[in-house]
Nucleic acid binder design. Sequence first.
DNA 1: AACGCGGTCAACCGCGTCACT
DNA 2: GAGTGACGCGGTTGACCGCGT
Length: 520
Amino acid sequence: MNTNNTEEAKHEGEEALGGVTGERGGGAAASEEVVLKKGPWTAAEDAVLVEYVTKHGEGNWNAVQRNTGLARCGKSCRLRWANHLRPNLKKGAFSSEEEKLILELHAQYGNKWARMASLLPGRTDNEIKNYWNTRVKRRQRQGLPLYSDEPDRSNVATPPPNNASHQFEFLHHHHYQHALPSPSPQPQYSPLSSPLQPKPAISDPMIPLSSPSSSVTSSHSFIFSRPAPLLSNPLNFKRFRTSTGFPLRVAPNTIVTSSSLPGQPMTPPPQSSIGFSRFGYTGQVNSGLSHNIYQAPLLEYDNRGGALNQFGNPPPKLLELSSNQFSPHHQPNNNIMQTESNKFNMQMNHTDDRMKNSCGGRDGGNNNGFLGDHFYEVQSLTPGHQAALKKRSYFYTDEGNDLDGHRGFDDLPLNSSNWPSNNAELKLKEEAQYMSKSMNDDISSMMDVMPSSLSVSDWPASNATEASNNNFQSSDVIIPDDNFGLDSKPIASLFPTSTTTTNHNDNSGCYSWDDLPGFC
DNA sequence: AACGCGGTCAACCGCGTCACT
DNA sequence: GAGTGACGCGGTTGACCGCGT
């Protein structure tokens, strides 16, 4: 194997490869037993990897070792590339804006670092994760709430740590003004609670976490009687792939602040115009304010269940985009993204590696628009790469430049006639139907946990409204896992098991926050 | 100077998912 | 349907650094 090392492995690689002692270069049999190096990468190793990726593109990471002799496993190569070597990585401390965005995104998505990274141009999930963990530790020590809009700096107003009511007011004011039926009693928060992860009193599957639109509507209002605990994953996302994999449209600067709401509630478009791209719905995208486009959790819920009933169509295969499933040729040119306050948006589309790495998640499991933008034209990819691009797509649409079938948000024609009608789509529909059923199952289990005042049958209306209140084209659909999408498992690390798993535990690892110490 | 501590960062590990056979 | 490989991703760990004592 290693005797086949290509020339590229020879030049700069010599030194790097020398990091492994003994095994390489042995007999034929021994070559199969290359001991992979661990630990910090050397510059020589980096050079080898960079060169390889430059030539062959991302993906097929195990081939790196095979073809270059680099004594690193594929995973290590991928990680090294994704976190350190790929172009346009931002280094250095997070800006206050980024910090704020991280806060907001974490409030919305929980520990979905990759997803968050997809919305932070040039940042990696690892960076964000490290940052967050540091923050968590620090604030835990300080007894401060995590979810304040304090960007982890001391010069920003902080809610009084020991006054739950004040905290709520602070956060309520600064983050989310849920114009909802007033919860009763007034929610109280522990220092570890998140106002952005409210516990709905209504088991509405379309509950938008931290949704500005929630302050707008009435037909599907929901009550957040209490926030979800901190450090939990507010949503336990399931991932799905789609050829239309584009990421959530998050308007970072407006994501949570009610002040960014338009002067008037969004007028829901006719139901017929509510779009679920590619699946038979026509898509009408309001070119309105950016804050209306980020409601991924909401929309995903919509897609999953309600929309099916509402429109008589099965929901699409629910797709969460793996964080970077962006069209290689994605052009950030739609109105949605180009809002007044979202300088981030453009950056996201242009520089976010994950988004640009079109296929398969964080490092672009197969290939990348990133390379298309910066190193290659995607069209120039080798056949092997193009094949790889197809590999992990649900359907490969041989449409134009979308080699991987992943199409950028903006690339999507809103006319359903442009969408493929093929077996893959049918497959997706079947899956969607299955998932719709699964959702009902999930809902059933949720009911055990969260009493609902809204029946499941009410969802469609909510869906329609919510969907229409959010400029939305979603092929990037996140589906909350069971337990209402509240994955409370991480909480267990913070609280004694005896106190976190008592009541309201539905045997699936779901904890009630009522049982948590520190909650009223 | 030595030590402890906390913060940061890079990397590894394990598991889940998906595609392919 | 099972097995396998590749990949994605979250959690964890350990090295390193700066600072205070």
